[in-house]
């Protein structure tokens, strides 16, 4: 579907996330993303764009603060390169309604 969100709507605007001070997501082997993973599906399956490819640093950047815990991560990476655990209790996404 081409590049990410072309509209002005921001998927995070209507989500409350209590951000923990440390990341609940890390990449097991950053080299692997560059060397082996051609399509980098994490940059499009993640609905809130936690992952982005940095051309400059030649690596995937992880903005864990944006994670809405959709559940795709542990299984979405074809190389099992994403280590994903829950944010600490009481943190992360929060639905009031």
């Amino acid at each position: 579907m081409g590049n990410f969100i072309k509209t002005n709507q921001n998927p995070l605007k209507y989500v409350r996330i209590k951000v923990a001070d440390h990341s609940h997501i890390y990449l097991r082997d950053k080299q692997r993303c560059q060397r082996e993973c051609e399509n980098k599906p994490c940059t499009y399956f993640c609905p809130t764009r936690v992952y982005s490819w940095s051309g400059e640093d030649r690596e995937i950047k992880v903005a864990y603060q944006r994670c809405v815990e959709c559940g795709a991560c542990p299984w979405g990476c074809p190389y099992d390169n994403i280590s994903w655990s829950f944010p600490p209790g009481g943190y992360g996404v929060h639905y009031e309604l």
Binding site: M1, I5, F45, P47, T48, G76, P78
Partner: peptide, 17 residues
């Protein structure tokens, strides 16, 4: 299905839109 979204390069937020 996640594997289908991956194969087809789809994103659920875009699908909703």
């Amino acid at each position: 299905f996640l594997d289908q979204f991956n194969q087809k390069g789809l994103n659920i937020y875009q699908l909703l839109y």
